[in-house]
Design a protein around this nucleic acid. Structure first.
Lengths: 224, 224
DNA sequence: ATAATACTCGAACGCCTGTTCTGTGTCAAG
DNA sequence: CTTGACACAGAACAGGCGTTCGAGTATTAT
């Protein structure tokens, strides 16, 4: 009954156009013209570009200011400017396992997410597969992280000494954020607050590193 | 010798054009045309707009892609996209007074500053006269703020109970970040970490509120 | 006063750009 | 096979838009 040409919603060309607009805008700070889109996407006719642009507008991926040159803008979670979008996968709390990114967490799930300015991002892990978690409860206080804070993590299964990691201690059924140190007899999980004592783990105890902490953001609007 | 028409660097019209471009871009996600600038800035001729645009380009406030419609972009500290630029006025540490914004801190001082996504901003204090300070030393640990953290503040001389404020205790020659509570016999400055004891102040002791904490950002790249 | 400089206007030129129309080839349903 | 929706190309049109030029008006220096 229903005919499917290439894929259901977005064809390869739709995606290519969308990507080009985003990269062009990022570089030039203004959208491309129809003809420029055509050239860079291998479309020889302006009418075809217009054809796709109309579809993208119908699907809600794009907004157009008709009659205005370069009058288009990407909608939805395509951050313009120099910022990064990080999906908030869930909450992190002491007694619960850590949600980690699934394979297809980059899909069009317009789930909850936050935007972070590129210029704030440490090192060059600019927006690989970063993800964010909202801290629930006050169990991370010894990591100097409060209830309601947002932690941005980079997925990882292991870590170097001195890195702050999110770990799941299955033996203790506990999630925690600590500085990671491997020692001869096991592991040491050091709180950020030097006045607090580290957790010492024997090699036999399970320790699952879920990610490295890249950034912590605390919005202080808990007053009224 | 030197002739000064209106002001030295930027005339009123230059500023008006700059502001219009910024607001137009923020709303439409693409730059305005020369004619649009003319209309909204009270300039009847496109050549005059072009005239000012050339000057702005020469002064480095603008970049132009000649021959390309709407081919202009603001340079310097004019964040595109939906983000906010907050100037970093200095450091905050226990033994030093708190730098606060001067009257003309919005001028073209291309000093150090950070960008924060609009969507991260609490409440509607979107970028009034916010400013940021870099925390130096570990004296703010009881506010769950670590060495190297960036705190974003809103200027204030007083506060409501329960708000986190940056205060300067001149009697003790001390700067600190605490939750503020006014009590019958004085003030109570409560650390964020509930396991730590508050500072009790008599009414006679000087307490200068310098700002309210709006946000805390911690970049965790202290590993290599 | 005179000249120089800064600023403003209006109009015209021509490329840039979005729009529209006609035509072609493909593929699946009837 | 025929039909029709779909994907695409090319050309032509009209208006958008940056550019340029000639000219007029202030303001300032000499």
């Amino acid at each position: 009954m229903m005919m499917v040409r290439k894929s259901k919603g977005l064809g390869e060309r739709h995606q290519k156009i969308l990507d080009f607009i985003a990269s062009y805008q990022r570089e030039h700070k203004h959208p491309p013209s129809i003809r420029e889109i055509g050239i860079h996407c291998g479309i020889s006719s302006t009418s075809v570009v217009n054809y796709y642009l109309d579809q993208l507008e119908k699907n809600g991926h794009l907004e157009r200011d008709r009659k205005i040159s370069r009058g288009m803008r990407l909608t939805g979670n395509t951050p313009l400017g120099d910022m990064f979008r990080v999906p908030v996968l869930g909450v992190i709390q002491a007694g619960e396992p850590i949600p980690i990114p699934s394979s297809d967490f980059n899909t069009f799930t317009a789930e909850d997410s936050i935007e972070v300015a590129m210029s704030l991002m440490p090192t060059k892990e600019k927006g690989k597969d970063l993800f964010a978690l909202k801290v629930q409860g006050e169990s991370m206080i010894d990591a100097m992280i409060n209830d309601g804070d947002i932690v941005i993590l980079k997925p990882a299964q292991d870590a170097h000494n001195g890195e702050m990691v999110a770990v799941w201690l299955s033996d203790r059924n506990e999630t925690t954020l600590k500085y990671y140190f491997k020692e001869k007899d096991g592991y040491r999980l050091q709180p950020a607050n030097p006045t607090m004592k580290p957790i010492m783990l024997k090699k036999t105890e399970a320790l699952e590193i879920k990610g490295k902490v890249v950034m912590v953001i605390r919005k202080v609007d808990r007053y009224n």
